[in-house]
């Protein structure tokens, strides 16, 4: 698994980093910590400083001698310099797994999405200011988190608060859930010891066979793996009231694949508005 953490210097990013550390602790994922500066950073810019602090925190938690991230492997690597030339420098890498720290310059959401593609990320994790319709990055009132959720090709975990996850409330429709998204749910259930509730969304009159079949298929997938799962169907028109039943200990998961009913029914900015309004953390699955 490859995890991309995108953060700024504010407290919600520190919460998100804690989640990254927790996931990395169990999965031994390759991790990239990324910040994006709007202009070339100066030595006093808070973002490089924050990234440095995040790296230290990560290594303090996971850099022990028996850790896969323990930096004991010295290698020579070519690094691009600003003037177009290259320099071969000696770098220290993790024994088995990588922790990379990167700084990009430009528009935050564009650069995060671009890094995710370049890195082959399976999951982007980022924090944002809490619910109530904000979900922003404080720096320049940036809507980067919403844009990343709306446009990423991989799954995105948006952390709004530092709370344990006791239940994953996963909303799905009749379209096929990707293998990667099922595996992502598996990992999060295992790590949190959480319960799983699947909500099958239907439209125009109750249990359409496709939605029902898909709900059973996915329910069986988890059931066969020994994961207790409860299922229910809900009218798409009542989707928002379904969401209102979840609590702060829930992680709300939404399947938003290319052919997802949710994607078809709701415009992209609805997704962005929804994740903003949602009071708890949100996992968007792709």
């Amino acid at each position: 698994m490859r995890i991309l953490f995108a953060g700024d210097e504010h407290p919600y990013s520190a919460y998100a980093l804690k989640k990254v550390i927790e996931l990395a602790w169990h999965t031994w994922a390759d991790v990239t910590l990324l910040s994006v500066c709007p202009t070339q950073p100066s030595s006093r810019d808070p973002l490089p400083e924050a990234l440095h602090r995040y790296r230290e925190e990560f290594m303090e938690a996971l850099g022990g001698p028996d850790s896969p991230y323990a930096q004991e492997r010295w290698e020579y690597e070519w690094m691009a310099l600003r003037n177009g030339s290259w320099e071969e420098v000696q770098v220290r890498r993790g024994i088995k797994k990588e922790l990379r720290v990167r700084l990009r310059v430009g528009n935050a959401d564009t650069e995060i999405l671009s890094e995710a593609v370049r890195d082959g990320s399976d999951l982007i994790i980022l924090g944002c200011s809490g619910g109530g319709g904000s979900c922003m990055w404080d720096s320049a009132a940036s809507t980067a988190p919403q844009k990343v959720v709306g446009n990423a090709a991989c799954s995105v975990l948006l952390i709004k608060e530092d709370r344990p996850v006791k239940r994953i409330l996963a909303c799905m429709d009749q379209t096929t859930a990707s293998q990667e998204s099922l595996e992502m749910i598996n990992q999060l259930l295992t790590i949190h010891g959480a319960q799983l509730e699947l909500v099958g969304l239907t439209k125009d009159g109750g249990a359409r066979p496709e939605a029902y079949t898909q709900l059973i298929r996915i329910g069986d997938y988890f059931g066969d793996k020994g994961i207790p799962v409860s299922t229910r169907l809900a009218e798409q028109s009542k989707f928002e009231s379904v969401l209102s039943t979840h609590t702060g200990d829930d992680l709300l998961a939404l399947w938003m694949g290319k052919k997802s009913l949710l994607t078809l029914l709701f415009p992209r900015d609805w997704v962005e508005k929804f994740v903003s309004a949602c009071p708890s953390s949100v996992l968007v699955l792709r």
Partner: peptide, 26 residues
């Protein structure tokens, strides 16, 4: 593995695994 935990990762290494890769992966 789709059910990664620190314990299983460590146990794998103790048993001589070359690498431990959590799902999903590309």
């Amino acid at each position: 593995t789709g059910f990664a935990t620190m314990e299983t990762a460590k146990e794998s290494y103790q048993k001589g695994v070359f690498d431990f890769v959590a799902k999903p992966f590309k």
